[in-house]
C-alpha cells in the first residue's frame, strides 16, 4: 500500500510540472502536440527510472563529496542511450524534439530525484519513485500538449476534429506559457 502511494504521488499530489514546477524548459518547448509531449515524457521516464535504480544501487560506494558529479555522469550516460536509440528507431520524433533530448541531462527533476530520493532509499522504492515521477511528468506534458493541439489546430493526437485552422497562437511560444499558467491554476484548485 505504501509503495502504491509512492508510485501515485507523481501524478497529482507531487506532480513535477504542475506542483513542483521543475523541468519547465522541455515542458514548454516540446508540447506543440500531444504526441511530442508523450514522447518527451517517456524518454524522461526511462532516464529517471534507470538513473534512480543505478544511483540507489551504488549510493554506498560514492564518496559524499563527489556525489553530484557522479550523479550527473550516470544521468548523462542514460541520456546518451536514449538519444541514440530514439535517433535509430523513431527518427521523426527525434528530429521534432531536437535539442531537448540531450537537455534531459539538466532537467532538474532527474537530478532532484537522485539527490532527494534515490541517494537515501532502497532500490525498490527508488525504482517505483522514478517510474511514478517520470509517468507523472509524461502525464503533465501530454495534457499540455493535448490542450495546445486542441486549441491551436483543433486536433488531438494528430486526428483533426474540425477541418479549419485553429488559434495559431497556442502552437507558438506564447500559447505554451499561457496554457501552462491555466493548467497550474486548475491543478492547484483540484488539490485544495
Amino acid at each position: 500500500m505504501n509503495q502504491w502511494k509512492n508510485f501515485t504521488k507523481g501524478f497529482i499530489k507531487e506532480n513535477p510540472v504542475f506542483i513542483l514546477l521543475l523541468g519547465l524548459c522541455p515542458t514548454l518547448g516540446v508540447t506543440t502536440s500531444a504526441i511530442n509531449g508523450l514522447g518527451m515524457g517517456l524518454a524522461t521516464t526511462f532516464v529517471l527510472l534507470m538513473s534512480n535504480t543505478v544511483i540507489s544501487l551504488i549510493k554506498n560506494v560514492i564518496p559524499n563529496k563527489v556525489r553530484i558529479p557522479s550523479f550527473i555522469v550516470i544521468i548523462a550516460s542514460f541520456v546518451t542511450i536514449v538519444d541514440l536509440v530514439m535517433a535509430a528507431y523513431v527518427p521523426a520524433l527525434h528530429a521534432q524534439l531536437g535539442l531537448f533530448i540531450p537537455l534531459i541531462v539538466v532537467n532538474c527533476i532527474v537530478l532532484g530525484r537522485a539527490e532527494a530520493f534515490a541517494s537515501k532509499n532502497t532500490v525498490l522504492s527508488s525504482m517505483i519513485d522514478g517510474l511514478g515521477m517520470g509517468l507523472g511528468f509524461a502525464f503533465a506534458l501530454t495534457i499540455l500538449g493535448a490542450v495546445r493541439e486542441l486549441l491551436g489546430s483543433y486536433a488531438i493526437f494528430g486526428y483533426k476534429l474540425i477541418n479549419t485552422d485553429g488559434m495559431l497562437v497556442f502552437v507558438l511560444a506564447p500559447g505554451a506559457f499561457i496554457g501552462l499558467a491555466y493548467l497550474v491554476a486548475i491543478v492547484r484548485r483540484i488539490n485544495k
Binding site: A173, L180, A181, V184, R188
Partner: peptide, 21 residues
C-alpha cells in the same frame, strides 16, 4: 486567488513572448 504566484507570472511571460513575436 488561484492565479497568484507562478500562474500569473506565466501569463506575463506569455504576453512578453507575444510581444517578442
Amino acid at each position: 486567488e488561484g492565479m497568484k504566484g507562478i500562474p500569473a507570472s506565466l501569463v506575463v511571460a506569455g504576453i512578453l513572448a507575444l510581444a517578442f513575436m
